[in-house]
Design a protein around this nucleic acid. Sequence first.
DNA 1: TTGACATGTGACCAATGGGTCACATAAGTT
DNA 2: AACTTATGTGACCCATTGGTCACATGTCAA
Lengths: 106, 106
Amino acid sequence: MTDDDRVFKALADPTRRFLLDLLFARDGRTLTELESELEMTRFGVMKHLKVLEEAGLVVTRRSGREKLHFLNPVPIRLIHDRWIDKYTERQVTALVDLKAELESES
Amino acid sequence: MTDDDRVFKALADPTRRFLLDLLFARDGRTLTELESELEMTRFGVMKHLKVLEEAGLVVTRRSGREKLHFLNPVPIRLIHDRWIDKYTERQVTALVDLKAELESES
DNA sequence: TTGACATGTGACCAATGGGTCACATAAGTT
DNA sequence: AACTTATGTGACCCATTGGTCACATGTCAA
């Protein structure tokens, strides 16, 4: 299993993406705290966090008996750079921003 | 199945990512042409292309009996924007570029 | 030390997904 | 029309994966 394979497999599950959303909103949470946001047993959440951590999308730091989880955006940026070169980036960014603006006005 | 779910599921398979790499290098290829680059039957490749198309990562245009495939970078950009805000983007981009530069020098 | 809390491991099961094949339609060629 | 080429469909098999549970370790407080 390659590094990028781990990243994409990790992102393939909606629960794991929701965990990234939670950490994007606020970093440094524990397993128990994240579990309370999900309708799933602690074991399921723990499995998902392990997958995210092994993919490098989440980094952790121990503090006593707690384990704090942080979002690492680097792998996300690398996905972007794989299929969007500098030239295309300008066009796509403009297009996406325009679309967002139009939808916010309606 | 939500839109973004289709995108992430589509990206989860290494063969499909390789197909995107091929289209990133050169657009407008047919199924038969893409098949020749892979060690897999035509049916497998067709299934993968269907998944990519339903995710919006690949758009197609018919030309006679041929079907031409093109890469659409918009869903990739949306993944980026989901977990990297404008402020973080500057830091992450700088970090990724620096890392690439250091590795190219060694 | 006794109890409560936070995290960790391995086995297990149902569901999903990758790949192939038999078969089929449609379009170009001679 | 006969033949070839390009794409499409449904069924099938095997491997992988999401989720749960029984059980276990480590940490903090009284």
